[in-house]
Design a protein around this nucleic acid. Structure first.
Lengths: 100, 100
DNA sequence: CGATTATGCAACTAAAAAGTTGCGTATTTG
DNA sequence: CAAATACGCAACTTTTTAGTTGCATAATCG
């Protein structure tokens, strides 16, 4: 997941889709300075990470923002931050009260 | 930043340091199944991303968790989630009230 | 139906990342 | 002081990732 967002191009695409509007591959390719195929690959990576969903309509394939994995990422960061904070607390009480 | 956490090895190191305890390179290398040099490189990447801090003490170089960038990542994810949510709201009111 | 548009697949190239090895240097420690 | 420890730098190999090109196919439009 982090790896998927780690590429600047993918992050840009993801960010763009965050307005909820689904977009076709060619639309997304238009203002990316690279080939449609390259964009396609990035979209597949985002899809594999669960950050984006795809469904074909007629001859075009629409990619849309997908919030679930995003929540998971936030949860992970919260958890890490939480662990760190509680470690700080333990350190603090150790210093204040003398060793436990 | 996402790129820094995108590598499984780095994520593991980062996760491990989240308990607040600084660790030296060799300690971190011990239970990683790769060379000390490889671990060193990963630590440098994490440091460049501001996720970890380094300071030399004696002959060893201690790496410690660094929470600031973490908060930034969370902020970004919140912002994206927020944009998506408000887009949903607009869609909802559009459907309910008829077009604006 | 013929042309255009939107895409997929596969093979390829190029560039970046991950990891190793060898060697040199500072710092402890017995 | 000599040996062991902890590290840094640089060159190198390997593996992945990013991106391109060429060609084929399905849907749409006049």
């Amino acid at each position: 997941m982090f790896a998927a967002l780690g590429d600047p191009t993918r992050l840009a695409i993801f960010d763009r889709l965050a307005d909820g509007k689904p977009r076709s591959i060619s639309v997304l390719s238009d203002d990316a300075d690279m080939t449609r195929q390259a964009v396609t690959k990035h979209l597949r990576v985002l899809e594999a990470a669960g950050l984006v969903q795809n469904h074909r309509v007629g001859r075009e394939s629409q990619y849309a923002f997908c919030p679930e994995q995003l929540a998971e990422a936030r949860a992970y960061l919260d958890q890490v931050a939480g662990r760190w904070e509680s470690a700080l607390m333990r350190l603090k009480s150790f210093v204040e009260d003398g060793e436990a």
